[in-house]
């Protein structure tokens, strides 16, 4: 039941975090759909790691599930990071460039 209460309170948080506009059935249903989608896709993406290493996949699935549950609501946090703010967009673009170049350049040295 504690998981249920945790989920219920996260939905309440979601309503308050989502927007300052009057909350309607539409935007709550949208946010819950987004929440489930993000949660499920996190688990499935972690499961995808089994093609690289099965043990790592099990560890990451458990970690992802625990982190996702303890950080709900995820949808509103993801939404706040996906704004049209130039700073946030530039930040993620630079981070991606750095990670891509570092992973591919140094990663392939060990091939």
């Amino acid at each position: 039941m504690s998981f249920y209460r945790k989920f219920l309170s996260s939905v309440k948080d979601l309503k308050s975090n989502l927007s300052k506009d009057p909350t309607t059935m539409d935007n709550v249903s949208g946010a819950i759909a987004a929440e489930f989608l993000i949660f499920v896709s996190l688990i499935l993406a972690a499961l995808f790691l089994r093609h690289i290493n099965a043990i790592a996949s099990i560890v990451v699935v458990i970690l992802a599930a625990v982190l996702a549950f303890t950080n709900m609501p995820l949808a509103s946090k993801v939404k706040s990071e996906q704004s049209d703010s130039l700073e946030k967009m530039s930040f993620y673009i630079i981070i991606t460039l750095g990670v891509l170049v570092a992973l591919i350049y140094w990663g392939l040295k060990y091939v």
Binding site: L18, D26, N27, G30, A31, A33, A34, L37, I38, S41, A45, F48, A75, V78, K79, Q82
Partner: peptide, 16 residues
């Protein structure tokens, strides 16, 4: 691909 599918569709679900 996973990031695009999940982020794109999750954001659209919350859009007004």
């Amino acid at each position: 691909a996973i990031l695009a599918m999940v982020l794109g569709v999750a954001m659209s679900a919350m859009e007004v």
